[in-house]
Simulated scan of single mutants.
Amino acid sequence: MKNYIITALAFAGILMSCNSSDKTTTTIEETSEADTTINQIDKNLKPIDSNDALIATALMAAPEASRANCKVIGYNLAGEFVTLKEGNNEFIVLADDPNKEGFSAACYHKDLEPFMARGRTLKAEGKKHQEIFDIREAEVKAGKLNIPTGATLHIYYGKNVLYNPKTSKVDGAKLRYVVYMPYATSASTGLPEAPAASNHPWIMNPGTHRAHIMISPLADDGM
């Protein structure tokens, strides 16, 4: 009887050893597969470390059908504000500034360029946000600057600065849309002055030169 019990216990031990070995092997295999997938994803993402990369990622802010003929401007890797790519359609694209944290590129109608350029000039002079707002407000009222009603601005932005060279997509970046409606208000448009929910249109800076319809992306992952 004693021998039978010893034999049974030994057999059970062998089974437990096999099961444990199988689980360990399975866990190792699963972990290895997961690591491989992560490594493959990481290998697809590269830093934006050339002017060509600056152009490619900036163009993601523009409508796909218009990207080939967009003019691209912005800071190159040497820190110079230049024309990175010539274009001949209705859009101008402002590339991400490689010296700033995160990623932000913008595409806007060419008729907005005087307004945008004025903002860049005032900022280069050391003016702060509210000063720039007030100066351009006065200049629009005086007829020195013009913001066409209905002109659009597309902003492609995110907190990451790696991109996929095959697709030109920046990791985690999203699009936010603006439609300029100078001096429009909630009463004149029927839009709220704050978003009812993510991806819902609302009016920002109502009653000013910079009044615009804002459409932000759906929120996820804390973006």
Rank of each mutant, 00 (worst) to 15 (best):
S17M: 13
S17K: 07
N19V: 06
N19T: 08
S20Q: 13
S21D: 12
D22C: 08
T26D: 11
T27R: 12
T27I: 12
T27H: 11
I28A: 12
E30W: 03
T31M: 13
S32D: 01
E33C: 05
D35F: 15
T36Q: 15
T37N: 10
I41G: 04
K43D: 03
K43V: 05
N44T: 15
I48G: 00
N51M: 01
N51G: 07
D52L: 06
A53I: 00
L54E: 01
A58L: 09
A58I: 13
L59I: 07
A61R: 04
P63T: 12
A65R: 04
R67C: 00
R67M: 07
R67H: 02
A68Y: 14
K71D: 01
K71L: 05
I73V: 08
I73T: 06
N76F: 06
F81P: 01
V82N: 13
V82C: 08
V82M: 05
T83R: 00
T83F: 05
L84A: 06
K85I: 11
N88F: 15
E90G: 11
E90H: 12
E90Y: 11
F91P: 00
L94W: 08
D96E: 04
D96N: 13
D97K: 06
P98N: 10
P98W: 07
N99D: 02
F103N: 05
S104R: 03
A105C: 03
